[in-house]
Protein backbone atom coordinates (compact mmCIF):
# COMPACT_ATOMS: atom_id res chain seq x y z
CA UNK A 1 0.00 0.00 0.00
CA UNK A 2 0.98 3.59 -0.48
CA UNK A 3 0.17 6.81 1.28
CA UNK A 4 -0.74 9.76 -0.90
CA UNK A 5 -0.49 13.32 0.48
CA UNK A 6 -2.33 16.37 -0.81
CA UNK A 7 -1.44 19.98 -0.06
CA UNK A 8 -2.91 23.44 -0.54
CA UNK A 9 -5.54 23.60 -3.32
CA UNK A 10 -5.04 19.93 -4.15
CA UNK A 11 -6.16 19.00 -0.64
CA UNK A 12 -9.20 21.26 -0.96
CA UNK A 13 -10.11 19.58 -4.26
CA UNK A 14 -9.49 16.04 -3.07
CA UNK A 15 -11.27 16.63 0.21
CA UNK A 16 -8.54 14.64 1.99
CA UNK A 17 -5.14 15.39 3.49
CA UNK A 18 -4.02 11.86 2.76
CA UNK A 19 -5.36 8.62 1.36
CA UNK A 20 -4.09 5.04 1.23
CA UNK A 21 -4.09 3.44 -2.19
CA UNK A 22 -2.35 0.59 -3.92
CA UNK A 23 0.08 2.13 -6.38
CA UNK A 24 2.97 -0.36 -6.35
CA UNK A 25 4.42 -0.85 -9.83
CA UNK A 26 2.78 2.23 -11.30
CA UNK A 27 4.74 5.19 -12.53
CA UNK A 28 4.14 8.62 -11.06
CA UNK A 29 2.42 9.62 -14.31
CA UNK A 30 0.05 6.64 -14.06
CA UNK A 31 -0.66 7.43 -10.43
CA UNK A 32 -1.50 11.04 -11.34
CA UNK A 33 -4.07 9.83 -13.88
CA UNK A 34 -5.55 7.42 -11.35
CA UNK A 35 -5.76 10.03 -8.60
CA UNK A 36 -7.17 12.69 -10.92
CA UNK A 37 -9.97 10.32 -11.87
CA UNK A 38 -10.69 8.87 -8.45
CA UNK A 39 -10.57 12.08 -6.41
CA UNK A 40 -11.51 14.66 -9.02
CA UNK A 41 -8.23 16.52 -8.64
CA UNK A 42 -7.33 18.91 -11.45
CA UNK A 43 -3.93 20.47 -12.10
CA UNK A 44 -1.88 17.44 -11.13
CA UNK A 45 -0.03 17.96 -14.41
CA UNK A 46 1.40 21.24 -13.09
CA UNK A 47 2.27 19.70 -9.72
CA UNK A 48 5.61 18.32 -8.74
CA UNK A 49 5.76 14.95 -7.04
CA UNK A 50 7.80 13.79 -4.09
CA UNK A 51 8.43 10.17 -3.20
CA UNK A 52 9.52 9.75 0.41
CA UNK A 53 10.19 13.50 0.70
CA UNK A 54 12.41 13.79 -2.37
CA UNK A 55 11.39 15.22 -5.77
CA UNK A 56 10.79 12.53 -8.36
CA UNK A 57 10.16 12.45 -12.08
CA UNK A 58 6.97 11.31 -13.79
CA UNK A 59 8.55 8.05 -14.95
CA UNK A 60 9.69 6.90 -11.52
CA UNK A 61 8.11 3.58 -10.44
CA UNK A 62 6.38 3.39 -7.07
CA UNK A 63 7.47 0.76 -4.57
CA UNK A 64 5.72 -0.87 -1.61
CA UNK A 65 5.47 1.52 1.32
CA UNK A 66 6.42 4.64 -0.63
CA UNK A 67 4.75 7.87 0.46
CA UNK A 68 3.85 10.04 -2.51
CA UNK A 69 3.17 13.74 -2.07
CA UNK A 70 1.78 15.99 -4.78
CA UNK A 71 3.47 19.36 -4.51
CA UNK A 72 1.65 22.27 -6.18
CA UNK A 73 3.83 25.22 -7.25
CA UNK A 74 5.22 26.54 -3.98
CA UNK A 75 4.67 30.02 -2.54
CA UNK A 76 6.76 30.28 0.59
CA UNK A 77 9.07 33.11 1.54
Amino acid sequence: MNKILFFAHLRDEAGHESVEIEAVGKTVAQLKEMVAEKYGVQKLDTSMTAINEEFSSNDEVIKEGDTIAFIPPVSGG
Binding site: A8, H9, D45, S47, M48, P73, V74, S75
Partner: peptide, 18 residues
Protein backbone atom coordinates in the same frame (compact mmCIF):
# COMPACT_ATOMS: atom_id res chain seq x y z
CA UNK B 1 -9.49 33.44 -0.51
CA UNK B 2 -7.10 31.52 -2.71
CA UNK B 3 -4.07 29.28 -2.49
CA UNK B 4 -1.21 31.03 -4.23
CA UNK B 5 1.00 28.91 -6.43
CA UNK B 6 3.40 30.31 -8.85
CA UNK B 7 0.59 32.79 -9.51
CA UNK B 8 0.46 32.76 -13.28
CA UNK B 9 1.67 29.18 -13.54
CA UNK B 10 4.61 30.44 -15.47
CA UNK B 11 6.73 27.64 -14.06
CA UNK B 12 4.93 24.37 -14.65
CA UNK B 13 7.16 21.34 -14.21
CA UNK B 14 6.31 19.11 -17.18
CA UNK B 15 8.58 16.32 -16.00
CA UNK B 16 7.03 16.43 -12.56
CA UNK B 17 10.03 17.91 -10.79
CA UNK B 18 12.29 20.93 -11.06
Amino acid sequence: QEWIGNQLETVPYPTGKP
